[in-house]
């Protein structure tokens, strides 16, 4: 299997941490993984994005140019990454912040109000987990339980109740895939 992913949004939306979490989950599932962040001038304010590859074979390049799945969390990300999705691929759109309709007809578009769901769960910060839940269910690339296992390994300082909340958000997302 090979799954190339791009995640994109504002700095502070948990784009990078979601990517690292996916990569770690891949390791837990004994897959080859790579994670590659955008770095430099766009670190604050603008759009942050990252590439993740989860594969059974060796990963050739960590920079994903035609992703199987794209997760966009804000408006500018949609404009930048919608054209990149591989034909037949998946585009996960955070409709809480993105009002523009995606144009592509050759891909599967999944619309999820990530912020609203996170707010309902009582913590706006878990909106990225909602998106990852959608991703896991829609692609089948990784098991939700594995993401849950990776959480305390990647974020060692998280309290158990916060981890529980993150897992809840993953499951809420999975329901909407």
């Amino acid at each position: 299997m090979y799954q190339g992913i791009r995640i994109s949004g504002f700095g502070g939306q948990g784009v990078i941490s979601a990517g690292v979490l996916l990569a770690y989950t891949g390791i837990i599932e004994n897959k080859n993984v790579s994670f590659f962040p955008s770095y430099g001038a766009e670190m604050r304010g603008g759009t942050a994005n990252c590439s993740v590859v989860i594969a059974s074979d060796e990963v050739d390049t960590p920079i994903v140019s035609s992703p199987d799945t794209v997760i966009v969390l804000n408006e500018p990300s949609l404009a930048k990454f919608e054209p990149m999705v591989k034909p037949g691929g998946i585009l996960i759109v955070n409709t809480s912040l993105i009002k523009t309709e995606p144009k592509r007809k050759d891909i599967k578009v999944i619309k999820v109000p990530c912020n609203e769901i996170a707010d309902k769960l009582g913590n706006a910060k878990v909106m990225n987990m909602v998106a990852l839940g959608v991703f896991a269910k829609a692609t089948g690339a990784l098991a939700i339980e594995s993401i849950g296992k990776a959480l305390p390994k990647v974020y060692k300082k998280l309290k158990p109740e916060v981890i529980e909340l993150n897992i809840k958000a993953l499951n809420e997302g999975a329901k909407l895939a």
Binding site: V20, A23, I27, N32, V33, S34, F35, F36, P37, Y39, V59, T61, P62, I63
Partner: peptide
């Protein structure tokens, strides 16, 4: 190079 420096792997 920058790719190897910035990327994460197992």
């Amino acid at each position: 190079d920058g790719t190897l420096g910035q990327m994460m792997e197992g």
